[in-house]
Design a protein around this nucleic acid. Structure first.
Lengths: 207, 207, 207, 207
DNA sequence: GCTTAACCGAGACGGTACGTCTTGTCTTTCC
DNA sequence: GGAAAGACAAGACGTACCGTCTCGGTTAAGC
């Protein structure tokens, strides 16, 4: 058995781990993902390079973990979408917030970096879905199920598909910079999605 | 004025240009975008590095051009989507073909490489839209306008939005590997899009 | 007083000490002094690195001790040069043996390693003279004193000088690989030395 | 054919070569051979590391070349030992100068460094003999031949052996720090050597 | 016989240097 | 004057060791 020597996680220095993740996040904000080197992360964190190589397989993995750590800083639970009973209003609120977040230049570099990693590395993509995307999607689906029970959404709709129709155009337009991200665009996506997954039997009110 | 010396395009060696673009495409297929270096491209093309630096500002630009060259190999015109009069059937045909293309492992590496470049570099993104995306989208929109005239699509629909709702979910799912790409998925996207942009006044047939 | 904590020699593990010295000797034979690391010695000896650092100040000291241990394996006494009454014959015997030893490739790496250490580190050089060179030289000088009493060597000769004239050329030629080490060469050195330190008043027999 | 790519010597930058050799010499004087790293040499010389690795196989080779360059700075010819007709006086003069040189602490570190390299690396040893030792020895042998013609040295003596008997003890004592290096010691070595290689037939004058 | 200090193996740590690879510039030589 | 060839300064890569520093486990003194 080849069995590459594995480090003993029990001995891992929590102080170093935190310093590395912090340094990674700082450097990405400061100079952009592509220009960040592992050497720079180690230097900024006051850590030997080997300590990074010991615990992470690649720069991407470090960067990914640094995002993960951010998202899980709070207790991680209790997140929920607003549920006023008016699905359209609630979704527009959330989509407009998402649009605003993506338009914030402070988020620009890190989120693009995260997307680059995910596109490149199937392992990180899987981890991303499991640790970040799926939990968030579950919260959104919960709101959609509530809407299904309230008769505001087709009870047979595939909720994964609903979320994709709702979010993918926004994400794609942001990623490719192929159009403006405005509140009106957010609203239009919500409208289109609700038309597509309106409960069966309703009279079409026109687009 | 410092005025960085600019090369005279008239003197450009067509032989070298082709060799470089070919080498770039080959190497990306063989070893993936991230592992391709300008040195390797130059060596494979039998070209001095300076010849690459003289005509392209970055590796991304070379790679991008190598794709551009591919897409424009044919006369570049006359491309048109099928128009049998049945929008749903025509779209499903096209979407199923797109799904099949994305699932082809031979396309995997190069298309991901292209997407990486576009995400990273706003200039390339603009060039991409202008040279590759917009012409293709125009062809698609032409089919949609035909459908609008035939009363199969809401005459007031924003065709850019229609295309996004139709394609972005597919593209996103492929990019993030967040779900299977099947013919059924292609059909579901067409169905959802047609429901969302159905002409006003129609009776909902159910999802 | 800061007083760096000193280890208690009474607690020293004899098993570890032996394993370390053995590992050091083995590794030097296998890969040459320069390529042997303390980590490798520790790993081969099945010992923690700290156990080496606790008892030796440097790699050189370990290596030196490993040689020392070798030379002192026997009871360490009773060594004596042959004394047949014929100084020339006795010296030629010993010198030819020395030549043979130096020509043995198995001795090559370790003895060079030892010389490197001695040249580099005055402390080790002093220890070397005290523990290894001086006792051996004393044995040789005893034979020379016997020759002086027998009138075969100048009674006033500086025996340290005699030994240097006898051995240094051989050692130098080996160290610098500046010439062949043969039995004839050994004889020539003995002849030259005896001519240089022949008792006063003798008739020169020619070289 | 494996054929490791070889750099083209015609393109070699003389400026870089000199800067590297100078930096190497300076650093060895300042911090001792063992503590000098290739990185430090490159940094001091204002040169990329690759430029060193391109032209020298090892640190030892750089250091060796830096000595070589020193010794060949002058026209390299015309060196000759004094020849007053009195061999003993001439040799004592030269040997006392050698003793003084070895005792000079400024020479200590670099010459020890050079010896370490030679002992370790047969290739460098061969180069050392060819480029440095042999030419110097030839000058010395020329003086000895003059003495042979003058009847002050055995005409049949092996001059290589004479030089070894004369110099090796001194070199060995310095290298191993096994005794004081004094003018008296220099004289004693000359005396012993002359006794050993006195022309045949002479009456022994006593030691 | 119980406690306790020290040694032990193991190996993570902050570092330094290694030797290799690539970048983008510069220079030389050929066509 | 464009192009091949490739040396150059710069600096990141991932690896190997350095010498120090915990960790538990295990002896062996000293009570």
């Amino acid at each position: 058995m080849p069995e590459t020597r594995k480090p003993n996680p029990a001995r891992r220095s929590e102080r170093s781990r935190q310093a590395i993740l912090d340094a990674a996040r700082e450097l990405i904000s400061e100079m952009g993902y592509a220009k960040v080197s592992i050497e720079a992360i180690a230097a900024r964190a006051g850590v030997g390079k080997q300590t990074i190589y010991r615990w992470w397989p690649s720069k991407g993995a470090v960067v990914f973990d640094s995002f993960l750590a951010l998202s899980q800083d709070p207790e991680g639970e209790g997140m929920a979408l607003p549920d006023t009973g008016d699905l359209e209003a609630d979704l527009k609120l959330v989509m407009r917030a998402t649009v605003a977040e993506l338009a914030d230049p402070a988020f620009e570099a890190p989120i693009r970096a995260l997307n680059l990693e995910i596109i490149n590395d199937p392992d990180l993509a899987a981890q991303y879905r499991e640790k970040l995307a799926d939990p968030v999607d579950e919260v959104k689906k919960e709101r959609l199920r509530s809407a299904q029970r309230a008769g505001q959404l087709d009870a047979d709709a595939d909720l994964d598909l609903v979320l994709e129709v709702l979010y993918a155009p926004l994400h794609h337009r942001w990623l490719h910079r192929s159009g403006p991200l405005t509140a009106g665009y957010a609203d239009a996506l919500v409208d289109a999605t609700l038309r597509a997954f309106r409960p069966a039997g309703e009279i079409t009110p026109g687009s």
